[in-house]
C-alpha cells in the first residue's frame, strides 16, 4: 500500500468515480437544511458531490433545490423510499430524466426502525442500474460478500454505513470497513452514522476514499461552521492514510529524544 500511496500527497491525489475526478473527498447530503443553508454548507464543505432525493413535486412554482446547487457540482440522487430493487430502478430512471447526469446512490431499505439497507436487493438494484448505464454507488451494510456482489454487478464505488443513518453514533463498523478497504478494488465511501469530525477523520485514516455526511452537519449548533470542521478532518485523515500511520508499541516505550549525550 505504501508504494501505491507514495507521491499522492500533492496535486495528483484525486478521487475517481465513474470516470469523473474529484478533489474533495467530502460528499454532502442535502437533507434537513433550508435551501439557503444548503448553499452555505456546500460552499464551506468544499463539496464537489451532493446527494438529493426524488419526491412527488408540489403544485406551484416553489423554489427548487437545483437552483441552490453550486455550479459544477456532481449530483448524486438517491433512491430513498425504495423497498425493492425494482422500486430503486424506477426512482433512478426518474432522477436521470430530471436531467442531472447518470450518478445514482442505490438505497434500498425495508427496515423501518434502524433503517438498515437490504444488501440483497441493493446488489440486485446495482446490477440493474449498471446495466442501464448508471454510475451506481450502493449504500450498504458493510458485509464483504455483499460488497463483492455489488462490485461484480458494476458498482462504481461502495458506500458502507458507519452506524444507523442519522444516528451520529460514529464509526461503529470500523473493523468491517477496514476489510472492505483491503479487499474491494473500488472507492469505499463511508456513508451514514458519522457524527463528528474526529470520526470522519478516522474513517479516512483507515483508508476510506471519501466520507458522506448530512445529519452530523444539519443537527450541529452551527451547520456552516461544522461543514468547515468536517472538511478539515477529512483532509487530515486522507493525508494520514497517504502518509501511513506510525506503528503501535504494545508493551514498551521508545524515547523520541536521543539516548546518548546525556549531561552528567
Amino acid at each position: 500500500m505504501g508504494g501505491e500511496q507514495a507521491g499522492k500527497t500533492g496535486a495528483e491525489d484525486w478521487l475517481e468515480i465513474g470516470g469523473r475526478r474529484f478533489r474533495s473527498r467530502f460528499i454532502l447530503g442535502s437533507g434537513k437544511f433550508s435551501l439557503e443553508m444548503t448553499r452555505a454548507v456546500l460552499e464551506n464543505a468544499g463539496a464537489e458531490m451532493a446527494t438529493l432525493a426524488v419526491r412527488r413535486a408540489n403544485v406551484g412554482g416553489e423554489e427548487n433545490i437545483l437552483d441552490y446547487m453550486p455550479p459544477g457540482i456532481t449530483l448524486l440522487p438517491n433512491t430513498s423510499g425504495a423497498r425493492t430493487a425494482e422500486e430503486a430502478l424506477r426512482i433512478a430512471r426518474l432522477a436521470r430524466e430530471i436531467g442531472c447526469g447518470d450518478f445514482v446512490k442505490i438505497e434500498v431499505v425495508r427496515d423501518t426502525k434502524y433503517l438498515l439497507p437490504d444488501n440483497y436487493e441493493t446488489a440486485r438494484a446495482t446490477e440493474m442500474a449498471a446495466r442501464e448505464g448508471f454510475i451506481a454507488l450502493p449504500y450498504m451494510y458493510p458485509d464483504l460478500s455483499a460488497a463483492r456482489d455489488m462490485a461484480q454487478a458494476g458498482a462504481a464505488a461502495i458506500m458502507p454505513l458507519g452506524a444507523p443513518i442519522g444516528s451520529n453514533q460514529g464509526l461503529l463498523t470500523r473493523e468491517f470497513i477496514r476489510i472492505l478497504v483491503e479487499e474491494i478494488d473500488l472507492p469505499i465511501i463511508v456513508d451514514a452514522g458519522i457524527g463528528r469530525p474526529s470520526q470522519a477523520c478516522e474513517a479516512m485514516e483507515i483508508g476510506a476514499a471519501a466520507v458522506m455526511a448530512n445529519t452530523a452537519i444539519a443537527t450541529a449548533g452551527d451547520a456552516a461552521v461544522m461543514a468547515c470542521a468536517f472538511k478539515s478532518a477529512i483532509e487530515a485523515g486522507r493525508l494520514a492514510w497517504l502518509a501511513g500511520p506510525g506503528r503501535v508499541l504494545e508493551r514498551r516505550a521508545e524515547a523520541a529524544s536521543p539516548l546518548t549525550g546525556f549531561l552528567r
Binding site: G29, L35, T38, R56, L66, L75, M212
Partner: peptide, 8 residues
Amino acid sequence: IVCFVGGG
C-alpha cells in the same frame, strides 16, 4: 410528477 428535494 417528481422533482429533486434535499436528501441524504
